[in-house]
Nucleic acid binder design. Sequence first.
DNA 1: AGGTTAAGCGCG
DNA 2: AAAGCGCGCTTAACCT
Length: 366
Amino acid sequence: MLALEAKAHELAGGPFNLGSPKQLGEILFNKLELPVLKKTPKGAPSTAEEVLAELALDYPLPAVLMEYRSLSKLKSTYTDKLPGMIDPKTGRVHTSYHQAVTATGRLSSSDPNLQNIPIRTEEGRRIRQAFIAAPGCKIVAADYSQIELRIMAHLSQDPGLLAAFAEGLDVHSATAAEVFAVDIEQVSVDQRRKAKAINFGLIYGMSAFGLAKQLGIGRHEAQQYIDVYFARYPGVADYMARTRALAHEKGYVETLKGRRLYLPEINARNRQRQQAAERTAINAPMQGTAADLIKLAMLAVDAWIHSSGVDARLMMQVHDELVFEVADDAVAGLSEKVAALMSDIGWLDVPLVVEVGTGDNWDEAH
DNA sequence: AGGTTAAGCGCG
DNA sequence: AAAGCGCGCTTAACCT
């Protein structure tokens, strides 16, 4: 990190505090005269990762800043902090879970937040590797595969999507095959990447503009993808329209188990606020149903652990994942039983697939 | 000294 | 003009 800081100072033509938005903006946009690609809500030139990535194509400093940022995030939030949060009585870090915080019914986690431990980068995974099991035990992680898309299939009752899951297909590949009109075996890496962005975008209520930005393509092309998607999966198109209409009519949306989210701005005069409420209306039933489902799974798993007397403890919940500490000789039995209990929270018209992994640490268990 | 806001970024 | 949902944490900058 020191070397990166020195490199940044050299490229900037003088020392500055890399963590200071004010100083950084001064150097990037005044001194070096890099183009302002995006502004913050308050009007200052944005130095967000997405902007730096774009600028890095033409200038040397942004790439250095990006690497420095990612490393300092890991150091300040996890590497420096977590060891100091070990409880001297237990020798472990203990999070607090909050059951009545989120709008959708998810849990949240704080002090420390153990629901955002790094996993996406190699350096980040080294932090996850520090979460280890007691001697004689293993970590077992069980996560639902594509839970929100499965819920979308159930709620929309779209025949194509239901069939894709019933047949056990890779859903992003199946989507790509439909949208790009190719055999599923012929789907390219790039087509699958695009289909994945479409699928996630649908869950979030994303527009053609957002999809275009995400994929780095034109707005018209993005709109074509969406049009073709809805033509191939008309049940999904209907479901989205019905959900919006119901939200406007009732002023709330519900999960499959009846958890409500009220949307006070769904009929706001301000079009922007109204559209934001519509995106929430699309997302909340899917995110919230997933939350309902894993909570029921947690109850079932807890009941079994206590009634069976198995040497295992449920340690963490990360939205679609349960993490256990399990005695070595109980790992096989617990893995099988947990997968069954989680899969059998079955009120969906699609199979629930659970992926279970084991290891000496949390990273290995994935 | 201590609290709040803005920007940014870690995760699902 | 905005344009992708849900969280919590850190630092800098600003405020009382």
